[in-house]
Computed example of a mutant assay.
Amino acid sequence: MGYLHLPGLGKAHFHEYGTGQKPLLAFHGYGMTGKQFHVLEQSIIPQYHIYGFDHFFHGESRLDGWTEQQILTGMPKTMVRNYMEEWFKLYGRQRFSVMGYSIGANIALILVEEYADLIDVVILMAPDGLAVFKGFHFILHNKLGRGIFRTATKSKWLAPFLIKSLKKLRFIDESLYTIAYNEIDTEQKRLDTYYTLNLIRLLKPDVKHIAQQINQHKIKCLLIFGKHDQLFPKSAAMPFLGMLDNAEVHEVELGHWLVTKALDEYLVK
């Protein structure tokens, strides 16, 4: 494990694991840490040396001197380059691969956008960033939605009420309800959720350009979706998939909670 000292941002903590030699930078989903991909012990871990990064407000990554207003404005997309430039300072400029699950896919995709000529493989699991998710867009970019999000963060009862209402109206299923509820049941968790989603609100990949870069540099792509995922389903990603020349796409009998032993066993087969 170690840290990248990202100029103007803070310390990004990463975990190192895997028995392969090829470097792979990995970005986890909400509420997890960079160790999340440990579970892929038969499929991914034997192939790569993984650098699994903790998102800010997760694990041991820490922003340096950011005010609340800066966090709510959002991290500029250009700062994603700092991850690679600082990593290169430690390990030398070399070819690498990227992996992202859920919200972590935004950073992985932006690295493809910026460093396509150096990337061998892109692995995306239930990825955010390939299409606009209306729920996130509402609470992060709509004035009314941002107000509701802030109020729910400060309230002990409103956030649980909203989550239960979404489940009752079938906007989310039982698995998403469980994930969401476990992340808003304390004031600190609600605040971490609020800060996390606002910090990354500007990290929107240019999917058309990324698809062009993937095709031009013949980057190997593996995309995995949960058949029962109501958050980032395959259907929402179809325009992006249609732009790729030769992607390997899987839809498995899982929901959004995708990085599991069941997925590991599926990938091995």
Rank of each mutant, 00 (worst) to 15 (best):
V268F: 02
R170L: 12
G52Y: 00
I148M: 13
W257Q: 02
A247Y: 02
C221L: 02
A116R: 14
K22Y: 11
E265C: 03
D120W: 08
I139S: 09
L158T: 09
L176R: 08
S155M: 05
H58V: 01
H228Y: 13
K164P: 09
K35F: 02
T186I: 11
T73V: 04
I172G: 06
T151I: 15
D185C: 09
A237S: 15
L267V: 05
D192A: 07
E41R: 10
L267H: 04
T196P: 00
I107L: 07
V121A: 09
V132N: 06
L166Q: 13
D54A: 05
S97T: 12
G255N: 07
E86R: 10
F88D: 00
F57I: 08
I119H: 07
L169G: 08
T151R: 12
E251A: 10
T19V: 08
P76A: 05
H38E: 05
G20F: 10
V39K: 00
A26K: 00
T196M: 05
K227L: 07
N215H: 03
C221A: 05
Q213D: 04
S235T: 04
S175Y: 07
E113L: 00
E60S: 03
Q42Y: 08
K77G: 09
W87P: 04
D117M: 12
Q70D: 06
A159T: 02
G59C: 03
T186E: 06
G135Q: 08
G29D: 04
Q21D: 06
Q230R: 15
H228D: 10
F232R: 02
Q230L: 13
K227Y: 03
K261F: 05
G135E: 09
L166D: 06
Y194T: 04
K204M: 03
Q216A: 07
G226L: 11
M125F: 02
T186S: 14
Q188V: 12
T193M: 15
K167G: 06
F136R: 13
V98L: 13
Q36W: 01
F161K: 08
G92A: 13
F57S: 02
A211M: 06
D117N: 15
S175T: 13
M1P: 11
L90S: 13
F149W: 03
H250L: 10
S175W: 09
F240G: 00
K189T: 03
L40S: 02
D173W: 07
R62M: 11
V98E: 02
K168V: 13
F171H: 11
I107M: 12
K204I: 07
W257E: 05
E248P: 08
